[in-house]
Amino acid sequence: MWKWFHQLASPPHFYRISAILAPWLAIPGTILIAYGAWQGLFVVPMDYQQGDAFRIIYVHVPSAYLSMMAYMIMATSGAVGLIWRIKLAHAVGAAAAPIGAGFTFLALCTGSIWGKPMWGTWWEWGDPRMMSELILLFLYFGYMALRSSIDDTTKADKASAVLALVGIVNVVIVHFSVEWWSSLHQGQTVFKKGTMDADMRIPLFIMLIGFTMIFGSMLLRRIRTEVLYRERRTRWVREMILSSEGGA
């Protein structure tokens, strides 16, 4: 297990393995999303309270879940990079940030669009779920800005890893905000028993799996780029590019 882990953490090995893995995540992920979206839009019965507006759940929940998952990946890889000084870990964090920011923006937009017909407002400044999700977006922006403002990669890695670790507090707040405080946002529904009929829940799980696979594929591709950039002066990159075996 440890041998496999150490092998995977080796940049040239990871670069080769990820090239094989990425399409195996992207293709089934796209099929699952297409199927889940079709089910969510046309097959699943409408909700008795929210009507057809509830169909937004099939894009809102996966994007909100990925917004938090990407941050957890960023923070965990930051911790691994700081503690064990694994070079690949910092590349993972740097690669996860823009994807996480994209899904956080999407969660905020779809939530706001869903909120208008259900709550009568696009945005509520006092709502803990909305505000903590907005802070999450700013944390992503801060992480990326901090990285690009420091020229020394090692220093940038360390500083951004610390910021990512501090920001975990906000991810916990995002998750539990609907339980700790009164919020316009509905409480936990997806994993709570008896809150959703199986006809509605199964397409949501399909979408969650599909989105996770697409996210995995995007992440692998971005880590590969990050690895290539960081290792640009190494022998293996030189040999790979000159022999044109690696492919872009």
Binding site: L41, M46, G51, R55, I56, F103, L106, T110, P117, I214
Partner: peptide, 20 residues
């Protein structure tokens, strides 16, 4: 039309497609 919610539902799906 989605029972009058079409604009909200389709804009969410469209935006998701664009962002992904």
């Amino acid at each position: 039309a989605m029972g009058g919610y079409g604009a909200y539902v389709w804009s969410c799906y469209g935006l998701t497609f664009v962002i992904v």
